[in-house]
Design a protein around this nucleic acid. Structure first.
Ligand code: NAD
Ligand code: NAD
Lengths: 206, 206
DNA sequence: AGAAACTTGTGATTTCAATCACAACTATTA
DNA sequence: TAATAGTTGTGATTGAAATCACAAGTTTCT
């Protein structure tokens, strides 16, 4: 359960710590100081310690953090001790790449339903998932506990599709379409737009 | 030319304003107040005005902003009055989707070089681009003016590939691999990692 | 065992970004 | 024309996040 008064910017850094800790664990490390973690993750050590201290004391003075224990704690804080089923809407170039991406399942996010509007795409199988007609959204979502959606339809279909998803119980949307979605309170949206990132980068290129 | 003392967080919002203004222009709007723009973009009007005021006065008191003029100004600030050629390294699932993505060229970003290490992929043509051997990186980049790279290789190859890109003149990297790149000063990196975004979202899902 | 080195966790402080408040100007209405 | 409403641009203020500074505890060294 998310405590209400922790700055969102603090929460946003936790997945980064988790990612880096997972790397370190794979390399055989067992304990790490905030200073060493800082070098890996590129965030000041004192900020890492302060971020973690919002949730409790996970380290040992004079020693550092037990990596396995800290990973466990972060996964618990971020509600990652479960498999999160997801729906993807829009199985075009990008949608297919995301369905094939191994990185989601590896971290406990599983695409279990894929929807499209194009008859040529409906019925095809991608990485074990058979694409369904988007018209089945209501019935398919009703009999599932999916709360997360990946939105990879064209921009002009994104708002109406998002509305439909929310009407059928979706609580979080990862939106790849280059528009700003307007959704009711209580639904969380995160956007991924490479063009915005590039336009940010070019500001600094002479 | 980027003025040095403008907060990065301000710069990061400009592409968002530009995106929304482009939408409005396509819908036939000609003038917009900061208040109306605020509703579209989801950022307070006063913050939009303050952000813009770092770069000059683009509006007319009592009236608002001429959309075409403001778009022009933002494009100029962000160095978008040119075509930016880009290289992509790693032409797998994601790389192929990005090469096919129309949204880059539409905003002046053009993938002109695609590199991979896999002999089965080298030589294939995707959306008009013939994939080259990554061994040709040096010679291909030397005779080009490419300064932006899209990095879509597996995580374990990302750091070394990024180092090679930088050694060959790349100044900005859009990194899709789920690791934190360590690069010299003067090279800008932006990361796109959907898993981190999902892990941020799940914090708020009960 | 005692001293020195190391490291966490956090209240106090500083820095930076967001918001407020309003003067200056424009457009519209009567 | 004069009054009213609308809107920008920005100095002043507030608020929030980052950093500092250090007490408290642990480990290592001699
Ligand atoms: N391709 C990329 O690498 C990339 C990168 C960043 C963002 N995006 C964005 O992601 C979205 C998809 O891009 P793409 O390149 O895969 O496009 P695409 O045209 O290849 O795929 C879009 C898919 O959505 C389906 N679709 C259209 N309307 C639908 C609806 N109402 N309901 C369900 N499905 C519907 C289409 O049939 C198609 O299969 C776009 O908004 C694009 O701007 C793409
Ligand atoms: N597929 C996705 O939707 C997705 C989403 C987010 C992030 N990512 C990340 O993007 C990267 C690519 O993912 P993918 O699914 O396309 O993987 P992939 O295995 O399909 O493609 C990787 C490509 O990189 C090439 N490659 C490997 N080593 C190379 C090297 N040293 N030089 C040049 N090319 C090399 C491979 O031959 C392959 O074609 C990974 O880091 C992944 O974590 C992918």
């Amino acid at each position: 359960m998310a405590k209400p008064n922790i700055p969102d910017i603090v929460v946003s850094r936790l997945p980064l710590y988790l990612q880096t800790l997972n790397h370190l664990l794979r390399e055989g490390e067992e304990v790490i100081s905030s200073e060493e973690l800082s070098e890996q993750v590129g965030i000041p050590a004192v900020q890492i310690r302060k971020d973690l201290s919002y949730f409790g004391g996970f380290g040992v003075k004079g020693k550092g953090y037990d990596i396995i224990h800290l990973i466990d704690s972060l996964r618990s804080i971020l509600n990652l001790n479960q498999i999160w089923p997801m729906v993807i809407v829009g199985v075009g170039n990008l949608g297919q790449a995301l369905i094939r991406y191994q990185g989601f399942a590896r971290q406990g996010f599983e695409i279990v339903l894929a929807l499209d509007i194009n008859p040529k795409i409906i019925g095809t199988e991608i990485a074990g998932i058979v694409v369904q007609d988007v018209g089945l959204m209501e019935s398919e979502l009703k009999r599932s506990d999916i709360r997360i959606a990946l939105l990879t339809v064209p921009a002009n279909a994104a708002q109406s599709t998002a509305d439909a998803l929310v009407a059928n119980g979706i609580k979080a949307i990862l939106n790849y379409a280059p528009i700003i979605l307007k959704l009711p309170e209580g639904v969380r949206v995160a956007n991924i737009d490479p063009v915005l990132k590039l336009e940010h980068l070019t500001y600094y290129l002479s």
